[in-house]
Amino acid sequence: MKNETAIKNKNGDSLYKLLNFLKMNKNIIIQYSSLLLVVVIFTVLSDGKLLSSINIQTIIRQLVVIFTISVGLVFVFSHGNMDISVGAVVALSSMVAAFSLNAGAPVWFSTMIAMSVSVACYLLNIYVANQFGLMAVISSLAIMFIARGIVTYIVSTTNMSIRVTEIAVLNLYNNLTFMILSIIIVGIIGVVLFNYKKIGKQNKAIGDNMLSATQSGVNVKKSKVISYIIAGLLVGYGSMFSLARSLTVSENSGMGLEMDVIVALVLGGMALSGGSKSKISSAIVGSITLVLLNNGLTMIGVPAEVVSLVRGIIFLLVIFLILRRPRSEKVVPR
């Protein structure tokens, strides 16, 4: 008799513990379950075509750009800054890379050039923001206009859009194995930098409370600059994949990427205000979810005209689940 109640209590206890565990890890669960849900739903709806080997190749090609860029931008978002210049910077860097390739430069050199252009954009961004005390999102708006403006102007001076004349030079960036390797390596670098080096931890502290961070010995300006360099490097690198896919640069290149990155990060459970809830896994999981979502919607034959609408609704749902602050979490006054 006594034993029975003990067991009952134990069961109740473990149920309570389970509930508590679920509550504590709500965000992580949503983060991964939305990925899982997208996979399951679209696999079923597309009769398994989603996971066919041809489609997986397509997915990887779509993934590599957004993945690379999102990992870079976690460093910016985690300290509470937002960046909307990604698309324009990708266009500018791939344009410069295309010119250098056409001038006969080897592909590694063009990659370096693309990365330096992008890093320069991001350094200018954070310099302006630091120097004039602006919100970095405002200076990134300026950078966006400038970069997009340069691309638009130069494209307008040539009769046609800018093309890579020797397609073969970009073979490397179209190689599937290289893409997969690159995804893995960028992922690992991102995880290590963000979780096991000072920069990630300091970024989170800055995002939460800049004053406390300063008084705890965090050099806020330095951390920000390093983060923007990391972001710049990865955006520049990502722009090479983008160039390799399209082989041309027009005034519309990279358009909308900045929003895709934000959507990817939010789908991955990132708090856009930064701080301690920032996770590098948001970029990894979120960009995969986003690409699967886009791909899946076209796979099951949702007309292109309503894809945006459907995406919007799903996005709203995820925000509601992740970012909403439950009413019960009211702080008890003292």
């Binding site: 502290a205 939460d208 409370n209 406390s212 701080g275």
Partner: peptide, 9 residues
């Protein structure tokens, strides 16, 4: 406001 980061662990 200045020493602790309240939202961090």
């Amino acid at each position: 406001q200045e020493t602790l980061i309240l939202d961090a662990s």
